[in-house]
């Protein structure tokens, strides 16, 4: 793979994470527990959609065959999507989506930090912009984890369950594939082992402060980074791509 194609694949994978998570959060519109949370959730999904657009646009530029952000979002089949399984998981209840955000965002923040130091200017610039947004998201989601973990008995029980259920999707974040390895070798990309250690420390701190228990080591699901998704993903994509697939070539 040429360096450009490598970068295109890497940027589009980052775009996939952002878009799929943004799309999940959009499903929560008009369903938040309180009006103020409605506004926060919309802000965060807008941030993620914005990041997806930047990553896809950059991927298209590196690839050099004229694909734009919408070609990436709406005209690729399921197996070409390379997002983490974690971000495609259904929203569930508020505790489930809170835990999903905390687990993903604590990883993503470190990843973006590492990417600001990579040798590719295009990606490091996008990372520098995204990092400010994600730092704030993580502050918000962590605060909620504290409230739910250390709130009522019911909220404690529910959110512990969320944590236990979603834990198996965290392993994938730290297992490097060829793309990660090449990214690291050629562009001084993120070192996933170092990030894992940082992530574990951060997550442990917040989980303990929330009076929750770190889940036991367990079997880890994987496949998202290779385009093998959970069953939920096909529906997300079918819904999102509906108009573009029904009316090919139309402008909206």
């Amino acid at each position: 793979m040429s360096d450009n194609l490598l970068m295109a694949a890497y940027a589009s994978r980052l775009g996939d994470n952002a878009l799929v998570l943004g799309q999940r959060m959009i499903e929560l519109v008009a369903a938040s527990p309180e009006l103020e949370e409605e506004l926060a959730n919309a802000n965060f999904s807008l941030d993620y959609i914005g990041q997806a657009r930047m990553f896809y646009t950059y991927a298209g530029k590196c690839e050099g065959v004229g694909r734009d952000e919408d070609d990436f979002a709406f005209l690729r089949p399921e197996h070409e999507y390379r997002n983490l399984l974690l971000v495609e998981q259904p929203n569930g209840h508020f505790g489930d989506s809170t835990v999903r955000q905390v687990l993903f965002e604590s990883w993503y923040l470190h990843l973006l930090e590492a990417l600001t130091r990579c040798s590719d200017e295009g990606i490091s610039e996008i990372a520098a912009r995204a990092i400010k947004e994600v730092r704030y998201h993580l502050r918000h989601s962590s605060q909620w984890l504290l409230r739910l973990g250390d709130g009522t008995e019911e909220s404690h029980r529910r959110v512990q369950q969320s944590l236990d259920n979603l834990w198996k999707f965290t392993g994938e974040m730290f297992s490097p594939d060829d793309l990660d390895d090449e990214m690291r070798a050629i562009f001084n990309g993120p070192h996933l082992e170092i990030i894992e250690a940082q992530w574990r420390e951060d997550v442990r701190a917040i989980v303990e402060q929330a009076t929750l228990k770190m889940p036991d080591n367990q079997w880890m699901a994987s496949g998202g980074k290779q385009g093998r998704h959970t069953e939920h993903f096909g529906y997300l994509l079918a819904e999102m791509q509906h108009l573009q697939q029904t009316y090919p070539g139309a402008t909206w």
Binding site: L35, E36, L39, A40, N43, Q143, R147
Partner: peptide, 20 residues
């Protein structure tokens, strides 16, 4: 104004509501 359960939440709710 905003509703919030605590001061920290009030600050973030204010940010997310009034500085968009």
């Amino acid at each position: 104004s905003v509703h919030a359960a605590d001061d920290e939440m009030a600050l973030t709710n204010a940010r997310d509501t009034y500085t968009r």
